[in-house]
Computed example of a mutant assay.
Amino acid sequence: MTTVKGIKSAVDLFLAKEAKRKPRDRVPAAQRARSEHEAAFELQLRAERLDYAQEYRFCERMWRFDFAFPAQKVAVEIEGGIWTNGRHSRGNGMESDMRKYNRAASLGWIVLRGSPAMVQSLELLNATKDVLLERRGDDAGKVYLDGEARAVVQDELNKAGRAIIDSLRERQSAPPSNGAGNNRKEI
């Protein structure tokens, strides 16, 4: 027969073992339960009928975003434990986050970071909607180019622009065909 004292000692033993667990024994972030703030933000996104992905892996590393809008390359990270010396406010955790966010930026992502208070006040939701609208613009089919493709497109636009200007200058320097004076302005 199990006694209350026996149950108490089993719970105490379990808690003592749990406190001694090494970080590598802990559940990976991708398998960890969501925080209440992530759950609240998810409800807010659903209420707004926004199409999002959770725990979205955005690059070759195992880094994931809490929430992502891949088509617009917009991500949302909810930084918990900022007032309790949690992972996001200690040196190693902050450096790891910086590496992650820098990699995301190099791939063209906008990463919005928010605190639990920003989730509760709807500030993070409003910021997310603003950025999504800006990224979508009037044309939802907008294309975002990486550095090399952007340079090629810019070069082609410059060539086309120069060709148009040269064509206008040639027309301007040609004598008027109807004999009237030249009223054209210099470009």
Rank of each mutant, 00 (worst) to 15 (best):
T3C: 09
K5A: 15
G6E: 14
I7F: 09
V11A: 10
D12F: 08
L13G: 11
L13P: 00
L15I: 08
A19H: 15
A19K: 12
A19S: 14
K20Y: 02
K22G: 09
P28S: 11
A30P: 01
S35Q: 08
A40N: 11
E42S: 14
A47N: 14
R49P: 00
R49Y: 01
D51I: 11
E55V: 06
F58N: 07
C59D: 15
C59A: 12
R61T: 15
M62E: 08
M62W: 06
R64D: 04
F67Q: 02
A68Y: 04
P70G: 10
K73S: 11
V74N: 03
A75P: 00
E77P: 02
G81E: 05
W83Y: 09
T84V: 14
G86L: 08
G86K: 06
N92W: 05
E95F: 13
R99K: 14
N102M: 11
R103V: 07
A104Q: 10
L107Q: 11
L107S: 13
G108S: 13
G108I: 00
W109C: 05
I110C: 12
I110K: 05
V111Q: 06
G114K: 08
G114L: 12
A117Q: 09
Q120V: 03
L122E: 13
L125I: 01
A127S: 06
T128D: 04
R136A: 06
D139W: 06
G141N: 11
G141I: 02
L145Q: 08
L145P: 08
G147T: 00
A149V: 00
R150N: 06
V152W: 04
D155N: 10
D155S: 13
K159Q: 03
A160Y: 02
G161Y: 02
R162P: 01
E170H: 14
E170F: 04
A174P: 03
P175C: 13
P176Y: 08
N178K: 15
G179M: 14
G181I: 08
K185P: 07
E186D: 12
